[in-house]
Design a protein around this nucleic acid. Structure first.
Ligand SMILES: [Mn+2]
Ligand SMILES: [Mn+2]
Ligand SMILES: [Zn+2]
Ligand SMILES: [Zn+2]
Lengths: 138, 138
DNA sequence: TGATGTTTGCAATTCTGTTGCATGCGCTAC
DNA sequence: GTAGCGCATGCAACAGAATTGCAAACATCA
């Protein structure tokens, strides 16, 4: 429903527009993280730059987070709706399937603590695993 | 010494050439991982594509590993010389310093085990931390 | 020497990310 | 209501990274 989509945008402090509704709606339908290019294809005909800026806006407002899975193109996925915690996206593992080439958030799989050598101060962490996803391994 | 460099290439199963010696020699001098662009600048005037293919060759033979630190350009660093273990590079943490913008291998800092949800099969893992490096925090 | 395969250099292309600018649109102050 | 203002959008253009194609140079060996 558009109403839900607009509510979610407003909850994130983003003014709803046709394009933003469209992008958020599309993201909600996804089972995995998607790239700007995929989004562009899925919503065609839309302007790539507008989608790009929409994603940036979403990211700034912590509605989506971006994932760098090493494939060259950043992927985007919605942040957990509940998540009162700040930066939950910094804490969970991402999984790239070598078989279906999709990238998944594993929100239940938290990144373990890492003990860094003396002097190194951690501010962010990302952990990407690659292998075979549940669907492809079944 | 060129002799050492050539020995190391041969040990990795790579036929030494002028360009390969040059690239490996340069990599040996680095205290942090470097990008293709940096390598190109440091070795100028060399051809970017040749250096690119040289790195690919090194990577295939496990002489270097590449690191995706989220800066857009892949960084390359030598693999541990000893490392009888396969893929040691899959196991250690990489650190990107927000201050000096350098990317370091932390070969002593291993990536902790991650328990994946049922059905996910892990083949590779990469963990990149961002923050302030020892030099910049001192 | 001549044939063969590998390495190199250069041109060119693709892809991703990003910026600039002009237009459009909605909202508010008058 | 209308003028003005700021944000959103669309289009053109650019920057940088990665990658491919091709032909020339080079090494190797029968
Ligand atoms: Mn995620
Ligand atoms: Mn490393
Ligand atoms: Zn899969
Ligand atoms: Zn530093």
């Amino acid at each position: 429903m558009i109403a839900d989509v607009e509510k979610r945008l407003e909850a994130a402090g983003i003014k709803p527009t046709a394009m933003r509704n469209l992008v958020l709606e599309y993201l909600l339908k996804q089972g995995s993280a998607i790239s700007l290019a995929e989004l562009e294809r899925g919503l065609a005909p839309v302007d790539r730059v507008t989608v790009y800026r929409t994603l940036k806006t979403f990211e700034e407002h912590c509605l989506v987070h971006s994932i760098n899975d090493g494939t060259g193109a950043a992927k985007y996925a919605l942040c957990q709706e509940d998540s009162g915690e700040v930066r939950h996206h910094d804490l969970h593992v991402h999984f790239y399937c070598n078989s279906c080439k999709e990238t998944f958030c594993l929100p239940k799989t938290l990144i373990p603590a890492v003990v860094l050598p003396q002097g190194f101060i951690s501010e962010e962490v990302s952990l990407v695993m690659k292998g075979v996803c549940e669907r492809c391994s079944a």
